[in-house]
Amino acid sequence: MLLYDPTASVFTFDGTRMDLAEEFRDNPRGPFSADLQRILDRMRTTPLKGRYVLLVIEPFRVWQLARLSGERGEAPIPVDSVRYTSAAIAEWDIFKRRWKDLTGVTVTVADPVL
């Protein structure tokens, strides 16, 4: 049987490519350059255990950052008290967190003006 392999997502990228972070900030729904698309594909296939998700606190208004437990029937684990009042800001913040997690490099480009 064909099962999920959490180690199958193997793409690595240069964490200093701030031009690509900037590209995502400015155009978060694409279309993306090939280099950025690969980074997003990598980010979106991180292992289920620990994957960032958003808990809807108030529909369409407030979201809480959390990580999936990776275990069936176990609740996602909230990340501190990180809350967002915009899904777009949440998407950008999670992009930055994943960039740091995957490359060790902090995204230094300015946040979007929304």
Binding site: D41, R51, Y52, V53, P59, E91
Partner: peptide
């Protein structure tokens, strides 16, 4: 595993 990649946005959980 592929849900977020399929929908290409961070997963929201109601």
């Amino acid at each position: 595993h592929n849900t977020e990649n399929l929908f290409e946005a961070v997963t929201q959980l109601s």
